[in-house]
Each structure stands twice: as structure tokens, then as C-alpha cells.
Design a protein around this nucleic acid. Structure first.
Lengths: 211, 211, 211, 211
DNA sequence: CATGAATGAGCTTTCATTCAT
DNA sequence: GATGAATGAAAGCTCATTCAT
């Protein structure tokens, strides 16, 4: 008389609990007991559904990436121009307002720190960032192309925006009062447009740009 | 015939050991024992010179801020124009090459994560960032003024560059291979110059800028 | 098929072990390790069942109070007159012979010392003494009333007997050979009866008694 | 060039500091460092003047006994009758008002607890109590003799009063609000007088007293 | 005599993980 | 699937005592 499996549900409960714990405690101090308590489960159950604590973290990383992509997809639905698509991409990650998830942002900051230490976590973290980078590069290339500009600098600019994004997460988690409320999305767009506009037309080398 | 105090020396030994440990382990896992071992001291001695682990961290934060300012002072010595001064400020934090301290960068990332959790650490972290912000704003205002541009956007731009800086630290610690080697200082300068050049002349409102 | 909870049993095991340790070591030196060892448990288990050491102590205080009341109930079962009830009350606490628990007495002395230091312990300690005082006052009032004497002095006399009781515990723990073997119960009764007999009949003021 | 020895002064400084610490912390938690700090001395100096912590405690015990005897001597100076001398003895230990030293009382309670544990402390503690008992017995015998009563019960009564005294110390340290303010000296005298008055004249056996 | 750094054992507490039920 | 007790290895911190100066 097999009961119907609920592993998927349990796993996401646990991942959500880790998200909440990690956002305020950091990973090292997010104890399995606390995760279980927050998820409303018995402690032992956590290790039934996950091999160890790291595995929960890895799933959380994947989950956060999925959420960001989903928010972007929603925002991008109405976009028609490359610039609108870029805007959607940035807003999905950086805009305040509905859909913003401060806990997720704080958790991501903690994950970034943990990525330095745990090789497996580092791999997962970089895999996510790599996809972000690729997508962002694509957006930027489209914008540049739409303006008949050279696209060679797109990867570099994407890396710059990614760094800005990570730093904005950091500041919004740990130093919210130091930066203007909700400035991140606008600032990112500003950086992007300024650099795009300054790019020379396609076909010509971009020598003087090597700042 | 009292033994002569050596607390200052011991304290900096211990702070240096915490820096090294935190860079690879994070704060929570940088055990006092490991710190002592790395500093070549008996475990108990750490708590003779510091009330608790947090106090070491607070001193480390202050110490890192001092180091950054010192590096900047050295670089800024030869600067004559506002733009060179800005360059010195950014290079002191972001340039690779001599004076770059990957351990310090990684430690700072860990501190940023810890700042979310420990209120006292958060305060110290924000105090440092606040000073950075003020100094950077000053550099930007000088650059804008030198070009006869409105300076109103300087604080916002400074916040943007600070976020980029923090994010660049993060990426260089946890995802070095995703970003071009040593691109951070150049990218920051590019963001800054593009935005500065795009500012309208002083005296005219900057309406269309509210990106 | 959950394992059935045994917390109640474990907790009383641990409390009993603390009683034994505290009686010879005092609270500060009754280490959790030693408690666990004496209870035959793994060290970590103590903190699974109790938040911290203080919580064990608080439960021990409650437990000792329960034991005293139980012994008294047994002795008072056969009592018919108020004086016999008083005797039962005093014997339950002070008599040597069967039911006497030197360890509990020594533990209570240590608890009294600890009550000076730990506010929460002080509260629990005073709560128990307060109940003792109320019960004893009741016994004394009944005795006085049975002899048609004024009962106004009952609270004061009860406080005096309570002090004697605490002191007798102290001496029997730390200076047994200085006091006659098993004299405490008799001495307390003697104090009580002498004072009761000396009280003036009810209805008349007891002025000359204000010693 | 020998400096003039100040050992005696230093020792009493240290003893006084232990008194203050022990009164609020208990002996086990009165750290040598804290004692030194309170005495305004360097930590190492404590072990120059005392072999170890226990030795300080032993001297404190002796010191407290001396203080009690000194206060008694002052009060007894004006006493002419045995009863006045008894009063002086009890007041010296139990009266509130000038000369009362709550810290000393609390310290004595802590010492009583420690006496259970440390054999050497126990010996010193009992030695003091033994002298107290002898002196008190003497007072009581004198009172009884002055009234032409049998003195055989004096030791027993003295033990009872001593127990009351120790218990009054305990209550005044840990449960001050449970007992009437400043009732101890009066209560002790009341116990004493009631029992003295109830004693039969000398020369006749005291059978009915075997309560 | 005096200083204060140094030592290392021992303390309470936390926690990932295991496992009997 | 689920429970919650159990384990034992750390962790941070305290402290009596020693000792070079």
C-alpha cells in the first residue's frame, strides 16, 4: 500500500526554509534543526530527502536561478525592442516593487560568500552566473546591433553589469540606507545605455575604448 | 621590572591570521584555534588580547579600510587632475598588479556577508562604506566641476560605482574565470567617464536623466 | 512509526544526576559532562533535553519542592491535631531517619547560594520558600487558634522557623559534627512550642512581645 | 635596598576584593583576574601574595570571624548582665543598622556552600563555627545560671541559635523580601529567652524537655 | 615586589548526521 | 515516509596558574 510520494513537495519546503534561514543566519549557522523547524518537519526528515546540508544549498541555488528567469519571462512578455528586453532582464533582477524578494537577495549574497569555500557550491554558483552572463550578453548584443554598433564589447559590458548586480545585492542586504531606495535597476540601465551609446558604429575598430 | 606590553603587535598578528583564515573559510568557520595556530600563538592567548571573535573581526574591518586608504594615498600622490585622482581611487581598490591583495578582497566579501548577520559588524561595515562613498562622491564632483557639468548626480553615480566595486570583489573571489582578468578598474573608470560625459552642463536641470 | 518520546524519563534522570553532582561539587562545578556520565548518557544528549544547565537546575528546584511536599503528605496522613500537623511539616523537612535525603539537603544548600547569583534561580528559590512559608504559617495559626491564642505572630514565627530550617540544612551539610545528631526537628518543634505557649490569649494585644 | 614590606596591606586588599566578588559571584566564579582588577592590582601579584585562590578564601574566613568578634566586643562593652551580653553577641551577628555588612553576609553564605566541597575550607569554616558555638554556649549558660536554672541544655540551644543565624544569613541574602525587615536579631533573642525561661530550676532533671 | 603576557585544560553549548522505531 | 532521540566532535570562551622581565 504505497503512499503517494511527496518528495518533491517536501524538498521545496525544505529549500524554502533554508532560504529563509540563510538570509538571516548565513549558511554555516543555518542549522538543519532550524530548517526543519521552519519547514514544520521533523529533523530526521531533512536527511531523508537530502543527502546532506550542501545538497539543500545546491538545490536552493538552482531554485533561485529559476525564480529569476521566471520573473524575467513575465516582464519580457510585453517587450518588443531589444532595449525593452534588456530592461526586462535588469528589472527582473534589480527592480524593487512587486516580485522583489529581499530574502532571496540576502540568501544569494550568502551563497556568494559560501561559493568561495565549498567547491561544489562554487561550481553551481558559477554555472548560474555563467548563464546570466550569456543571457545578458545576448541582450546587449541585440541592443548594439539594433543601433548598428559594434558588438565586440558586449561580453565585457555584460560582466560589468553582472558585477554591478552582485554588488547591488550586497549593498541592499547589508547597507540599504547607503544607497538610494530602489536605484539599482535604473543605475544598471544607465550604465548600459551610456556605454552602448558611446560604442562606435559597427565595422570600425574600437581602439580608443580600451580605458 | 614589568614585562613590556606587546599587545599591539599581538593584536595585528591575530588580525592578520583572521584575514587569512576568513579568506578561505569564511568567518563562521575561521575557528579561534585555527587563527591561533596560524599566528603561532597558544589558543588562550587570542582571548587574552581580544574579548571575543567579533572584536577581531571589527579590528580587521578597520584594518582593511586603512590599507585601502594607504594604497590610494600612494597612487594619488602623482595625480594632478580630478580625473587622475578618480583613477587613483578606483585603482587602489580594483586594480590587479602590485598591491592587489586577493586575500583581503575575499575577506571583505566574507565580511559583507557577515554584516547581514551581526549588527555590530554591520555597523562597522557600513561605516567604512560610508566613508568610501563620501570620498568617491568627492572625486566625482571634482571631475564634473572640472568639465563645467552639474554635480547633482555625483552621489548616485558614486553609489553605482560602489556597488560595482563590491560586486567586482565578489566575482573576483568566487567566479574569477567568468570575468576578464583585471577588467574591474577599467570597467569602473569607463562607467564613470561615460556617465560624467553624459551629464548636462551645470546650471541646467537634468530631467531626462532620471533613467 | 515514530520512536516513542522518552523525554520525561530522560529529564528526570538528568535532574537526578545534577542533584548528586551538585551535592558534592556545587552548581558551578557540576559539569554537564559529569552529569551526563552519572546519568549514563552521551554528553550532547543533556542539551537535547534541556536548553541549558540553568534549566536543569530550575527543574531540580521544582523537584525538590515536590519531594518535600510528598514526604510531608505521607507524615501528615496520621495527624489529627494541629500540633501533630505542625510536627509532620517539620519532620518532613528536618527529621533524620527514613526518608531523610542528605544529598537533597546539600543540593538545597548549593541552590540557596546559587540563588544569590542567578536571577532566575533566585526567583524559583524564593517561590518555593514562599510556599513553605505560607504552609508553615498556616500550621502555626492552627496551633495558636487551637489554644485560643492570638495568631498575629504566626508569620513572624514561621519566618523564624524557616530561617532555622535553612540554617539546619547548612550545618548538617557542612558542619555535621558541630550539632547534635538529628536535633533539628526537635529543636524546631521546641522553638515553635515555646513561642506558641508564650503567646497571650486571643483578643488581647501582645505588646510586651515585640522583642 | 629593601623596600618596606607591604605584604600585609596587599593581602588585606586582596581579601577585601575577594569578599566583594564572592558576594555577588560565588567562589567558583570569582576569578583571580576579577579579584585583582577590583583590588587595583596586577593579576600576577595575587599569586605572589597568596599561594592559590583557596588561600585567599581561608584568610577571608578568618577575617570575617575577626570582624564579627570586633563588632561584638564593641557592643558588649556596655553590657553588664548576662542577658545584655547575649544580646550583644546576637546583635553583632544579626542586627541590621550600622555595622551590618550585607556583602559579608552574602560572602559567608557562599563560604558555607564552598565548605561542603573543599575539605580545607570546610575545616576553617567549622573552626569558626565552633568558636561561635562555644562563645554562644557561654553566654547562654551565664544567662541560665543568673536565673538559677539548669545549664545542661545550653549547648543544644546554642546549636539551635547558630542554625537560625546561618539560615537568617541565607534568607537575607537570597530572599530578603520573604522575611520581615531586620527581624533576625529580635527573633533570635525571642527564641533564646523563651527557651531559657522554660528551663527548670537547677538541680532538677529536665525530662519533659526531650522534645 | 610588580607586571602583564602566556599557557592549556576545561567549561557550556551547538550541530550534522545516524538510526531504532 | 516519518519521527525524534542519540551521538560525538568541534566550537567559543574562561581561568588558575606560571614566568620572563
Amino acid at each position: 500500500m504505497p503512499r503517494k510520494p511527496n518528495t518533491a513537495e517536501r524538498r521545496s519546503q525544505i529549500v524554502a526554509a533554508l532560504l529563509a534561514e540563510i538570509a538571516v543566519q548565513g549558511y554555516a549557522r543555518a542549522s538543519v534543526q532550524a530548517i526543519a523547524r521552519r519547514a514544520g518537519l521533523a529533523p530526521g526528515l531533512v536527511h531523508y530527502h537530502f543527502r546532506d546540508k550542501e545538497e539543500i544549498l545546491l538545490e536552493l541555488i538552482a531554485s533561485l536561478a529559476r525564480v529569476a528567469r521566471a520573473r524575467e519571462a513575465a516582464l519580457a512578455a510585453a517587450a518588443t525592442t531589444p532595449q525593452e528586453r534588456l530592461q526586462a532582464w535588469l528589472d527582473a533582477r534589480l527592480a524593487s516593487g512587486p516580485g522583489a524578494a529581499p530574502d532571496a537577495v540576502a540568501a544569494w549574497v550568502m551563497i556568494g560568500a559560501e561559493a568561495v569555500r565549498q567547491p561544489e557550491v562554487g561550481r553551481a554558483y558559477r554555472a548560474v552566473l555563467n548563464e546570466e552572463l550569456a543571457a545578458l550578453t545576448g541582450c546587449l548584443q541585440a541592443c548594439l546591433a539594433a543601433r548598428a554598433k559594434a558588438t565586440a564589447q558586449a561580453p565585457r559590458l555584460a560582466a560589468g553589469l553582472l558585477a554591478f548586480m552582485e554588488g547591488a545585492f550586497q549593498l541592499s542586504s547589508a547597507a540599504r540606507e547607503l544607497v538610494p531606495e530602489g536605484f539599482a535597476a535604473g543605475m544598471a540601465m544607465q550604465f548600459a545605455l551610456r556605454c552602448i551609446d558611446a560604442e562606435p558604429p559597427a565595422g570600425r575598430p574600437a581602439r580608443e575604448d580600451a580605458v
